[in-house]
Amino acid sequence: MDVFMKGLSKAKEGVVAAAEKTKQGVAEAAGKTKEGVLYVGSKTKEGVVHGVATVAEKTKEQVTNVGGAVVTGVTAVAQKTVEGAGSIAAATGFVKKDQLGKNEEGAPQEGILEDMPVDPDNEAYEMPSEEGYQDYEPEA
């Protein structure tokens, strides 16, 4: 019985440690998101679009440190934060509304985080759909 109880105690310690790591990862992701939003706020009209992409990228980098179902929630929060940063930029006159959601080359930025393969159960990952990809044929 002692062996059984000791095993359960060790398992509990492992769960607590994993929860603490997840909590730490979420806190880091939130900190990076805040950094990115402050970065966007300090940019001029020309830099705002690039700044919004930076927020998304920093958040995406930190999301990889967070495991399990938390990833889905962090990704949703990050996307809403990026959308909010863009709205703030438009409201303050840093950028025109028609410039939001495009990178410096004018290509749409939507789907940055949505296409990231995420499995809350950590069982399997699927690649994003290939609808947006084109076949590449090298020139002879």
Rank of each mutant, 00 (worst) to 15 (best):
M5L: 03
M5E: 01
M5Q: 02
K6T: 03
K6E: 04
K6N: 07
V15Q: 00
V15I: 12
V15S: 00
V16D: 01
V16W: 06
A19P: 00
E20W: 10
K21G: 00
K23R: 08
K23I: 03
G25L: 10
V26K: 00
A27F: 14
E28F: 07
E28Y: 09
A29K: 06
G31E: 02
K32D: 00
K32F: 15
K34T: 05
E35W: 15
V37C: 09
V40A: 06
G41D: 00
S42W: 15
T44S: 10
T44V: 05
G47T: 14
V48S: 02
G51R: 05
G51N: 10
V52S: 04
A53T: 01
A56V: 14
E61R: 02
E61N: 03
E61H: 10
Q62H: 06
T64A: 15
T64K: 14
T64P: 05
T64N: 05
V66Q: 02
G67A: 08
G68N: 15
A69G: 08
V70E: 06
T72W: 03
G73T: 15
G73W: 15
T75C: 06
T75S: 06
A76N: 01
A76Y: 13
A76H: 12
A76K: 14
A78R: 08
V82R: 08
V82M: 03
E83C: 01
E83F: 14
G84Y: 07
G86S: 11
S87N: 01
I88W: 04
I88L: 13
I88M: 09
A89L: 12
A89N: 03
A89W: 14
A91G: 13
A91S: 04
T92G: 09
T92C: 04
G93F: 08
K96M: 15
K96W: 14
K97I: 14
D98E: 05
D98P: 07
Q99D: 14
Q99M: 13
K102W: 14
N103F: 11
N103D: 11
E104V: 04
E105I: 09
E105K: 09
G106T: 09
G106I: 06
Q109G: 02
E110Y: 13
G111E: 07
E114K: 06
P117L: 07
P117T: 11
V118Y: 05
V118P: 05
D119I: 03
P120C: 06
P120R: 08
D121M: 06
N122L: 07
N122M: 04
E123W: 01
A124H: 14
A124Q: 11
Y125M: 02
E126M: 07
M127T: 12
P128I: 14
P128F: 13
E130N: 08
E130L: 04
E130Y: 13
G132F: 08
Y133D: 11
Y133W: 09
Q134G: 11
Q134T: 13
D135T: 12
Y136E: 11
Y136C: 08
Y136M: 13
E137Y: 02
E137N: 11
E137C: 14
E137M: 13
E139R: 05
E139A: 06
A140R: 12
